[in-house]
Design a protein around this nucleic acid. Sequence first.
DNA 1: GCCAACGTTGGC
DNA 2: GCCAACGTTGGC
Length: 139
Amino acid sequence: MNYWLFKSEPDTWSWDQQVARGAAGEEWHGVRNYQARNNMRAMKIGDRGFYYHSNVGKEIVGIVEVSAESAHDSTTDDPRWDCVHIRAVKPFVTPVTLETCKVQPGLEKMVLINNSRLSVQPVSPEEWRIICELGGVDP
DNA sequence: GCCAACGTTGGC
DNA sequence: GCCAACGTTGGC
């Protein structure tokens, strides 16, 4: 099992909208960045990820799960781009802000902090544990 | 709204 | 294959 982080601007697609999709999940379309795409290609069904609200909120608000492995992105004809499907698993009791992550020991190497522009990124098991604890949920 | 950081595009 | 120009992301 690997861990990831998915970014979305809540004005475009929010956690609540993701939750509304239920167990069926939602195609994580729109990624046009090779690194982010490659991360999605490395995902397996059942892998977990954090759901981060960029721009508005700037906080991790919940946990999602990969519900379909990477396949062609239906929003483009360009064969280069594909994406996974994800579904909401559970919300954080306490959202974990970017600000908190920046000062939290153990999170110094987080991609979220060091490469703020990558929209789909890996999370280490240790980072996963720390952030779940801060969020008030079981890892 | 600004702008730094970064990725992509395309001319040469 | 280099690199200047341009576009986008996302924190502030």
